[in-house]
Structure formats: structure tokens, C-alpha cells
Design a protein around this nucleic acid. Structure first.
Lengths: 161, 161
DNA sequence: TATTGTTATACTCTATAACTATA
DNA sequence: TATAGTTATAGAGTATAACAATA
């Protein structure tokens, strides 16, 4: 077992290292505009997470946000409060439980979030545009099997394909 | 020009989206142990950056760290101070300019940083180990041209190949 | 006077604790 | 009593301002 698995293991390690190098390159080189815009909008990390969570969901409670994002309830309350002041979020009292509030993105909130996502993709698009045809073709084929996984495909903005 | 570039543009956009989805998956699924260890060691983000910067460089000044990491000089001073208290960094007065101090990693600091890097790779290695042979082979071939780029290859821990 | 690094201070972010209102 | 959310308070982290030592 050891003898036969050794080469497979070595090549898997090599692939992990390659993947790490490419990720590190992408993280450091394709995120600039995105982070500048976050800074310009003066949004906290919790607010970004909150926008993202609300972007593709039905109106939900603060409790749900807190649980699923791993943030404290006061933290979510404050984050939402800031977004609300900027007109990015609307809160409506839940008619069935007057303690709870259903929060969701306004048109402006959706627009802001979409703009941020567009910047994130723009960095990657620029990287892709600068690739040679050979690099691009290879990478496209290389990612194809992974994109068949539903959980990964679901992370693509704008649907599975 | 427009007519002939359109399909190429579309496929490039698709690749950028795929790449984004894979990155997002990797970031959320392969970093757990790394972040737990950072928390356990009680290191700030500035301290991680500082360790990383010092890991593969000659002893440098705080000013250099501040400039290249985009952190304030007091921030660097405090970060280094914390690392020094934990025995991860040594400071020596620059003999040529007694205002300046040359800081570098101790053996313990190097060991700590290497341990963190190992955890980061371990998450990726696990992901790779769980891939099907088809996915793995495809990805390996897909990354190969990119790994020929010196700037990306240089990001691989432990040398270019 | 300019520069390296430290210390003083202020601000942001987010957590836990205390509170209000519903259930 | 228990729960949803808010407000009060405290702590971490990092920035700008003020400072000391050296150039």
C-alpha cells in the first residue's frame, strides 16, 4: 500500500502546492479594486457578509443572520443598522411575531452588492484576459470537471451555467 | 473586431466566473485549521503579515516593513513588540545607524510561520486528496502553463519546483 | 531639520452583559 | 420564563499625533 501510494501522494502534494501558489497570486493581484470600493463605501466586513447573505435569499430575521454568519446578534443589529441608514436594507416587522423583524435588500442595496461582485469578477476577468491562449485553454479544461460539482457551480454568480 | 472578439470575450468571462467559484470554494473550505491555529496563537493579521514578510528576507528595518506591508509604523512597532515578547523575533540595533533596528525571525518564529504555512497547504492537500482522479489530472494539466510563470512559481513554498 | 522608532491617544469594530418588548 | 432585537459597555487592533534619540 505504501509503495504504490507514494507516487500518487507526491503528485497530489505537488498539485496542492501549485494550487496554493495560483490562489495566492490571484488573491494578491485581482482584489485591489474590490477592496478599494469596500473602503470607499465604508462598509465593515460584517456588512459585506450581511449583504452577501441577503443578496440571494428571502427576507430573513436578524437571528438567522447571526446564526448562519457566526456573528453576534448585536453585531448583526449594528451592521444592519448602518446599512439601513444608507438605504441599502429594509426592515419590516414580522406580522406573525412582533418581536422579530424581516430584513432584506432594497434596490440600492442589491445594486451596491452587485457592483461589488462585479468588481471582484472584473479583477479575475482582467487576469484571464492577460493570459495566453494556451494558458486559458488549459485552465478552462482543468476546471471543467470541478464545475460539474453542484456545490462549486452554485458559487458562480448568476446561476449554474 | 467586435464580431470576431465577441465569442472569445464570452468564453473568457465564463472562465473568470469559474475561477471565482473555485476560489470561493477553496477559501471557505480549506482554511479552517489555519485560522484556528492563528486564533490559538493569538496573532493579529499584522503579525501574520509581518512573519510572512520576514520569513524569506534578510533582517530589515521597521520602516521597510511599514512601507511594504502598507501598515503604519506604530502598528508595525506594536506587532513586532508582541512577536518579540513571544520570542519569535529578534531586534538588533543597526551599527551603521543607531536610530534603526534590524528585525528578523528567531528559530521559534521561523518554526511558527512554517507551521502556519503547513496548515494552509494541508487544507489544500485534503481537498486534492478528495478529488477524483479525473478532476485531479485535469487540474494538474490546467495549472501547468501557469506554473511556468516565474512570479507564480515563486509563490510555491520551498522553491520553484 | 529630517528620520527611526516608541509611547499617548482616539476611533472602529465586534463581543458579552444588561435591558425592552413580545411570546 | 424564553426569545428577538436593541442599547450599554468593554476589549482588541490599528491609525494619527506627540515624543525621544540619532543623523
Amino acid at each position: 500500500m505504501q509503495a504504490t501510494d507514494a507516487p500518487k501522494q507526491a503528485s497530489a502534494d505537488k498539485l496542492a502546492l501549485d494550487l496554493g501558489a495560483v490562489m495566492r497570486h490571484l488573491i494578491t493581484h485581482t482584489g485591489r479594486d474590490f477592496f478599494h470600493e469596500v473602503e470607499r463605501l465604508d462598509l465593515s466586513l460584517s456588512q459585506i457578509k450581511t449583504l452577501q447573505f441577503m443578496a440571494d435569499r428571502e427576507p430573513g430575521t436578524l437571528r438567522a443572520l447571526s446564526d448562519e454568519l457566526g456573528l453576534s446578534l448585536p453585531g448583526v443589529s449594528r451592521a444592519i443598522d448602518g446599512l439601513h441608514k444608507r438605504g441599502m436594507v429594509k426592515r419590516v416587522e414580522d406580522p406573525d411575531d412582533r418581536r422579530a423583524k424581516r430584513v432584506s435588500l432594497t434596490a440600492k442595496g442589491k445594486r451596491t452588492f452587485d457592483g461589488l461582485m462585479a468588481l471582484r469578477v472584473a479583477g479575475l476577468r482582467e487576469f484571464v484576459a492577460d493570459m495566453s491562449a494556451e494558458e486559458r485553454d488549459a485552465l478552462e479544461r482543468g476546471l471543467r470537471p470541478l464545475m460539474e460539482r453542484p456545490d462549486i457551480a452554485a458559487l458562480r454568480p448568476g446561476g449554474r451555467r
